[in-house]
């Protein structure tokens, strides 16, 4: 009984193959469509980077004769983004098992919006009651555990947790780094992660050597036991 079934399957293979290719193409195309799923939290829409973006677009649209301002534009974009996030989720739903089992899920944001206000990480350890700098991003001087901290897997989370204000995860990050510090600095009693933020210099400022000042945004201290 199995052999005729196999024969039938073999005869139908060209049609089955074509059907599979069509389903695959539909699934990956829907997954890759621009997504706003990560933008459905109000706080993200009021970040300095988002505000600068809306201001630039409002200015540009007004120059084209479409009078608007940054706040109005943000409200409209919010409506479109939340509505599209729901539609996209519904389109994706039938393919979710295919994404999960075969790894075909995908989103290609790839530097979609340059953040003009990125954060920088600095790490200090407390020894004899004083905070000593051990790591400053891109400083070239303070480069404790630089291979680990600049690993593509660690850079992502260390900035993401700070940018989203996820203090629970920042605490977990500090806990891990505290254990590393305990191995490298026997007398260290605490570790401090400090994030500073400031606007990136415009080309004019860069030419004149005027680097904008950086303001502290997040700080977390972990006692080393």
């Amino acid at each position: 009984m199995a052999i005729p079934a196999l024969g039938r399957l073999r005869r139908r293979w060209p049609q089955l193959r074509l059907a599979f290719i069509a389903v695959h193409l539909c699934a990956v195309t829907i997954a890759a469509l621009p997504t706003t799923a990560g933008l459905t939290q109000r706080a993200q829409w009021t970040s300095p980077a988002a505000q600068a973006e809306f201001a630039a677009w409002a200015k540009r649209l007004s120059a084209l004769g479409i009078a608007t301002d940054a706040d109005t534009l943000r409200e409209r974009a919010w409506g479109v983004a939340t509505s599209w996030a729901r539609t996209h989720a519904a389109l994706r739903r039938p393919f979710v098992p295919y994404y999960a089992c075969c790894g075909t899920d995908q989103t290609w944001r790839l530097f979609a919006a340059p953040d003009r206000f990125p954060s920088r990480l600095g790490i200090d350890v407390r020894i004899d009651g004083d905070w000593l700098p051990v790591y400053r991003e891109l400083s070239g001087t303070y480069d404790w555990r630089i291979a680990t901290l600049r690993s593509h897997r660690v850079r992502g989370i260390s900035h993401l947790f700070a940018d989203t204000g996820d203090r629970q995860r920042l605490g977990q990050l500090a806990s891990w780094l505290g254990q590393l510090a305990a191995r490298d600095f026997e007398e260290a009693t605490a570790i401090r992660l400090r994030y500073v933020r400031g606007p990136l210099p415009t080309s004019g400022q860069l030419v004149r050597g005027e680097l904008p000042s950086l303001q502290p945004v997040t700080e977390i201290v972990q006692v080393i036991e």
Binding site: A32, L33, P34, A56, R60, W108, R109, L110, A112, P114
Partner: peptide
């Protein structure tokens, strides 16, 4: 698909 949708994501004024 990767390039095209990456391009569609790039709606920043920059």
């Amino acid at each position: 698909l990767m390039y095209f949708t990456a391009g569609l994501h790039k709606v920043s004024a920059h």
